[in-house]
């Protein structure tokens, strides 16, 4: 899969049908086809309905969209992951889920959940399977155990470049997605003289430069917005590319800053 922008429906996304439809419709018009959600976001059902309605309006089909959802931690703990996925398929009125990811790799439940996801992939309920919030340590361990995700989704931005993970995944042909790609526009990015310099050079705003940096480093960023103009703005990235030196300069901002501390949400991480 080529790198692309993914529209997320996490914490700061619209939660009602009308709000979500407006932004999804705008996103679809701009060419975004991939939508990320999770049970904990509370919008799986609404998102699926919105995508169905938008596809009808725009003369698109189900196959034109990529719907991605996750297995949340509490579902892993309860076990019976297939039941939750069947429930999601029913609620969302889908024949299949394109991408199913483990949200947090709880060590005690990972193997069992992963095996069940592999079976679901085999049966066609799910097309690709992956894991969120992993480090190279996990990927190496998975590799030794023959666990090969199709996708990983990690918190990644110029303050946390995850170069080891990117390198590993590129070697293995694993798709990489980045959540919090702008680090919530942390002041260290918003006020960065390096990024401002490129913003002037390419005549794009800071968000656009950072999202382009993700694409130029082989990563698909997941962004969220409730504003149409922002969605259009962030899709206006494909008329330029950062040079290698510019990419390196942005990557040099790395301080391994984590917005989310993984172990707090995934004990034993």
């Amino acid at each position: 899969m080529d790198e692309c922008l993914i529209f997320g429906t996490g914490a700061s996304a619209a939660k009602d049908y009308d709000g979500l439809k407006r932004v999804v419709s705008c996103a679809a018009t701009c060419g975004i086809r991939m939508f990320d959600t999770a049970p904990s976001y509370g919008v799986e059902e609404i998102l699926a309905k919105v995508i169905f309605d938008v596809s009808q309006e725009k003369g698109l089909s189900r196959e034109d969209f990529i719907i991605q959802t996750k297995i949340d931690a509490w579902q892993m703990v309860e076990g019976n992951v297939e039941k939750f996925v069947d429930c999601a398929l029913q609620k969302m009125k889908l024949q299949y889920i394109d991408n199913l990811l483990i949200h947090w790799p709880l060590p005690d439940f990972l193997d069992d959940t992963w095996n069940k996801m592999k079976l679901m992939k085999k049966s066609g309920k799910v097309r690709k399977i992956g894991i969120c919030n992993v480090r190279t340590r996990h990927l190496n361990l998975f590799d030794k155990r023959g666990v090969s995700p199709d996708i990983i989704q990690i918190e990644r931005n110029p303050l946390r470049t995850c170069e080891r993970e990117i390198e590993f995944c590129k070697q293995k042909g694993i798709e990489i997605q980045a959540y919090s790609p702008l680090c919530k526009m942390d002041r260290r990015l918003a006020d960065s003289s390096v990024i401002k310099k490129f913003s002037e050079k390419y005549n794009k705003n800071i968000g656009q430069i950072i999202l382009r940096w993700h694409l130029d480093t082989g990563v698909s960023p997941i962004f969220t917005s409730t504003k149409d103009y922002r969605i259009r703005e962030y899709m206006d990235l494909f008329d330029f590319a950062l040079s290698e030196d510019d990419v390196a300069a942005i990557s040099a901002l790395n301080i391994n800053y984590k917005y989310y501390l993984e172990s707090c949400l995934c004990p034993g991480f």
Partner: peptide
């Protein structure tokens, strides 16, 4: 140890 499992991500990797 249980608390360490919940808080270790704050450390320099």
């Amino acid at each position: 140890f249980e608390i360490l499992r919940h808080t270790s991500s704050i450390l320099d990797e």
